[in-house]
Simulated assay, not measured.
Amino acid sequence: MLDHQTDFLQLALQHEVLKFGQFTLKSGRQSPYFFNLGKIASGAAMRRLAQAYARTLKAAGIECDMLFGPAYKGIPLVTAVACALAEWGTDLPFAYNRKEAKDHGEGGTLVGAPPRGRVVIIDDVLTAGTALREAVAMLKKAGAQPVAALIALDRQEKGPSGLSAVQEMERDSGVRVIPIVSVREVLSYLAEGRVDAATLEAIRAYQGQYCI
Rank of each mutant, 00 (worst) to 15 (best):
L2Q: 14
L11R: 13
L13N: 09
Q14L: 07
Q14A: 15
H15P: 04
H15N: 14
H15S: 08
V17T: 13
K19Q: 14
F20S: 01
G21R: 07
L25I: 02
K26Y: 06
S27G: 01
S27A: 03
P32V: 01
F34M: 01
F34A: 00
N36M: 04
A41V: 05
S42I: 00
G43L: 05
A44L: 07
R47M: 00
R48K: 11
A50Y: 00
A52R: 01
A54C: 02
R55L: 13
R55G: 02
T56M: 03
A60H: 00
I62M: 08
I62Q: 12
D65C: 02
M66L: 02
L67E: 00
P70A: 01
A71V: 03
I75M: 03
P76Q: 02
V78Q: 03
A80K: 03
A84S: 12
A84Q: 04
A86E: 06
A86G: 02
E87S: 08
T90Q: 15
T90C: 11
A95E: 04
K99I: 05
A101D: 12
K102N: 09
H104C: 09
G105S: 06
G107H: 11
G108Y: 05
T109A: 14
L110G: 05
A113M: 09
A113R: 08
P114F: 01
I122D: 03
I122F: 01
D123L: 11
D124F: 13
V125F: 10
T127S: 15
A128Q: 13
G129N: 10
A131W: 11
R133C: 06
A135M: 12
A137Q: 15
L139V: 11
A142T: 08
A144P: 06
Q145T: 14
Q145H: 14
Q145F: 09
V147S: 11
L150Y: 10
A152K: 09
L153D: 05
R155T: 09
R155P: 05
G162A: 13
S164R: 06
A165F: 06
V166M: 12
Q167S: 13
Q167V: 10
Q167L: 14
E168F: 09
E168N: 15
M169G: 05
E170G: 09
R171C: 07
D172C: 01
G174F: 11
G174S: 09
V175M: 10
R176F: 03
I178A: 09
I178K: 07
I178Y: 08
P179E: 07
P179G: 06
V181N: 08
S182N: 15
E185I: 09
V186Y: 05
L187N: 11
S188D: 14
S188L: 13
Y189K: 05
A191F: 07
E192D: 14
R194M: 12
A197I: 11
A197L: 13
L200M: 13
L200T: 07
E201A: 15
A202N: 10
I203R: 00
I203P: 02
A205M: 06
Q209E: 15
Y210L: 05
